[in-house]
Amino acid sequence: MLHCHFCSRLSNCRITEEGYKALASALRSNPSHLIELDLTGNDPGQSGVKKLDDLLQDPDCELKTLSLRGCSITEEQCLILTSALKSNPSHLKDLDLSINEIRNTGVNHLCDILKDSHCKLEILWLRYCMTDEGCSAVTSALKSNPSHLRELNLSGNKLGDSGVKNLSDLLMNPQCKLEILDLWKCSITEKQCLILTSALKSNPSHLRGLNLGINEIRNTGVNHLCDVLKDSHCKLEILRSVTITYINHNFKITSTV
């Protein structure tokens, strides 16, 4: 028998807590077909999060993409959601919790998922939702399970020295297959840029996209980045704030952003 999978995109629909409850209850009656759920910009409230938690815990749930960007998710609500994801971690491939007040407590619970060997997350967006302590915890957790992640977006969070060191350790790991790394506006300094680029030089072949826009890397940081770009093993295709195309071991600037 053929099973039809479907996606539900309801971003910025002004769904209330009651709407969340109704939607989650409906989805629970037929959970095995839903593969993408986008609720960006809708506030679920406590009861809405609980209903979503019930859906995620359902053993028949095979959700692969979940976006809760800008949903006013609190620390307590993040705990509820991550507890549900821990009970069923192997299906989710894409998670966006950006622009939520999950704070360090919520981040720590998320880290429990990232460390789980059953976690197969490939895309993780955590823009504008953490302190430098949270960044350190996330990057440390990713080191323990590095082989699945393909895209990491930490834009708008201050990485701090510890976060930069952990991220560098992740990039240096031969099991790391990260292809897109977004560190826009992460307060990265010249010294921190040296640490990151040194890590990239040791494992340059996987990364395709890198965003270091609005950071204090200055000329010293750029010079170290150039060492990566000159490496014949480097396959970088997109570099922001300039877009660069790699052609026959030469770099051609195609546009600026």
Rank of each mutant, 00 (worst) to 15 (best):
residue 72 S to L: 13
residue 58 D to K: 03
residue 153 N to A: 04
residue 91 H to C: 09
residue 161 D to Q: 15
residue 231 D to M: 06
residue 135 C to L: 13
residue 73 I to T: 04
residue 166 N to D: 06
residue 226 C to N: 02
residue 22 A to N: 11
residue 102 I to W: 00
residue 204 P to E: 10
residue 91 H to V: 05
residue 150 R to Y: 04
residue 16 T to E: 13
residue 1 M to S: 14
residue 90 S to F: 05
residue 41 G to R: 08
residue 194 L to D: 04
residue 139 T to E: 10
residue 202 S to L: 13
residue 104 N to R: 11
residue 165 K to R: 13
residue 135 C to M: 09
residue 16 T to G: 14
residue 59 P to R: 12
residue 43 D to M: 05
residue 6 F to C: 04
residue 12 N to Q: 05
residue 164 V to R: 04
residue 84 A to W: 07
residue 132 D to A: 10
residue 41 G to C: 08
residue 153 N to F: 05
residue 8 S to T: 09
residue 2 L to G: 02
residue 257 V to Q: 02
residue 96 D to L: 14
residue 165 K to Q: 12
residue 121 L to S: 10
residue 128 Y to D: 08
residue 40 T to R: 03
residue 148 H to Q: 07
residue 39 L to M: 12
residue 129 C to V: 06
residue 168 S to W: 05
residue 229 L to Y: 09
residue 196 L to T: 01
residue 225 L to D: 05
residue 5 H to L: 04
residue 208 R to P: 06
residue 163 G to H: 07
residue 59 P to V: 04
residue 7 C to H: 05
residue 155 S to Y: 00
residue 101 E to M: 05
residue 216 E to I: 11
residue 8 S to K: 10
residue 77 Q to T: 07
residue 90 S to V: 09
residue 142 L to M: 11
residue 136 S to M: 13
residue 188 I to T: 03
residue 23 L to R: 05
residue 130 M to C: 11
residue 1 M to L: 12
residue 245 T to E: 15
residue 254 T to M: 09
residue 176 C to L: 06
residue 135 C to D: 05
residue 203 N to D: 12
residue 186 C to T: 08
residue 71 C to D: 10
residue 165 K to F: 08
residue 193 C to A: 14
residue 15 I to L: 15
residue 216 E to Y: 11
residue 76 E to K: 13
residue 129 C to F: 04
residue 135 C to T: 09
residue 224 H to E: 13
residue 235 K to Q: 14
residue 185 K to V: 14
residue 38 D to K: 02
residue 160 G to Q: 06
residue 141 A to V: 12
residue 123 I to L: 15
residue 177 K to C: 12
residue 176 C to G: 06
residue 90 S to M: 09
residue 203 N to T: 10
residue 126 L to T: 02
residue 43 D to K: 10
residue 20 Y to L: 14
residue 44 P to F: 00
residue 99 I to S: 08
residue 254 T to N: 09
residue 172 M to G: 07
residue 237 E to P: 01
residue 207 L to F: 00
residue 252 K to W: 01
residue 47 S to D: 13
residue 232 S to E: 11
residue 140 S to W: 04
residue 209 G to P: 01
residue 134 G to W: 00
residue 33 H to L: 09
residue 147 S to E: 13
residue 182 D to R: 15
residue 8 S to F: 13
residue 81 L to N: 02
residue 131 T to M: 15
residue 179 E to N: 00
residue 142 L to Y: 04
residue 105 T to W: 01
residue 15 I to K: 01
residue 193 C to D: 05
residue 9 R to Q: 15
residue 76 E to I: 07
residue 242 V to D: 10
residue 163 G to Q: 10
residue 126 L to N: 01
residue 53 D to T: 15
residue 102 I to D: 03
residue 156 G to E: 12
residue 19 G to Y: 14
residue 30 N to A: 04
residue 202 S to W: 01
residue 155 S to R: 02
residue 205 S to C: 10
residue 108 N to S: 07
residue 37 L to G: 04
residue 155 S to I: 01
residue 35 I to W: 07
residue 199 A to N: 03
residue 38 D to Q: 03
residue 124 L to E: 09
residue 63 L to A: 03
residue 251 F to N: 10
residue 219 N to S: 14
residue 183 L to Y: 07
residue 51 K to W: 06
residue 165 K to T: 11
residue 77 Q to F: 08
residue 162 S to C: 08
residue 118 H to G: 00
